[in-house]
Nucleic acid binder design. Structure first.
Lengths: 144, 144
DNA sequence: CGTCCCACTGATATAACGTCTCATTGGTAA
DNA sequence: TTACCAATGAGACGTTATATCAGTGGGACG
């Protein structure tokens, strides 16, 4: 459906905001843009190895800010990343293998409205992670 | 409303499950049970200093498993803990100061039912953190 | 097309957080 | 009271991430 692999567009977007499109950044963006799966910062750094670790971490943070990436919190609390596709969404995470799917929860806004009514907080954002066992792991006999 | 300060009951509960009620454990439980606020593992270890760091971390894990504590994920992804009061709940977290309130979202189950219908995952658990600015910080002029 | 500035890089140090190891200790069942 | 073994604590280690800082290359501007 949607076509990934448009680092050109993103690169332009970054340039417009005053960021330089350096070779390391380009490489990180290209590597990341086509991925469907989760990856840890450390794994990405290892994969792009001639590039410095610090640069990979900095670029991840940049892409997080720009909304190209989002953070996923696995069942054990560890953190990894995946492409965000920009639109707001949540995650369905397999406790056994860590695989993640995006889910769209339309009625979450209603829930938030209730919170808004019931509290004095000025709501800004939220995070929902749903944990379960994916079909593949279930077939393999994995249990909660 | 509810009375805290019942380390006796919890201690018995732990003993029933075969855990030893050692002096360090007792101290951790007593320190933690009366708290209303969040605390980091590191801060707790520092506070109970004669007790070894490893022991504090181990005890936190134990209390997490037993449901006396729950994990809170702050806006920046950092982790702290607070008493759980056992019943399932979610967190409303101030992005400015980290203060946290418990919230109960009754209709989350409906949302999860939809996920159950729409996916092949066997749902196990979920985590919802709502972020905002608390009244005190808002008054102080903090902004998202 | 050349030059210059400064954002960016990368090697390395530092920091935050948590787990592991292992010799020792103390709770508790008998 | 004794003895077993879970639990402790000091410290090493691992992981993940940020800070530092001299050097460099992207790209704006002339």
């Amino acid at each position: 459906m949607t076509t990934f692999e448009e680092p050109r567009g993103l690169a332009d977007e970054l340039r417009d905001q005053g960021f330089k499109i350096t070779s390391p950044r380009q490489q990180v963006i290209e590597n990341v843009a086509g991925r469907e799966d989760n990856f840890t910062a450390e794994a990405l750094a290892a994969e792009l190895l001639p590039i410095g670790r610090a640069t990979v971490y900095r670029t991840i943070k940049l892409l997080l800010d720009q909304g190209l990436l989002c953070r996923v919190i696995l069942g054990d609390g560890s953190i990894c990343y995946r492409v965000s596709h920009k639109a707001h969404h949540h995650h369905l995470v397999c406790l056994a293998c860590g695989a993640t799917e995006d889910i769209h929860l339309e009625d979450v806004e209603d829930v938030l409205d209730r919170v808004r009514e019931a509290s004095d907080y000025e709501l800004v954002s939220h995070r929902v992670e749903v944990y379960g066992i994916c079909p593949a792991c279930r077939a393999r006999g994995a249990r909660a």
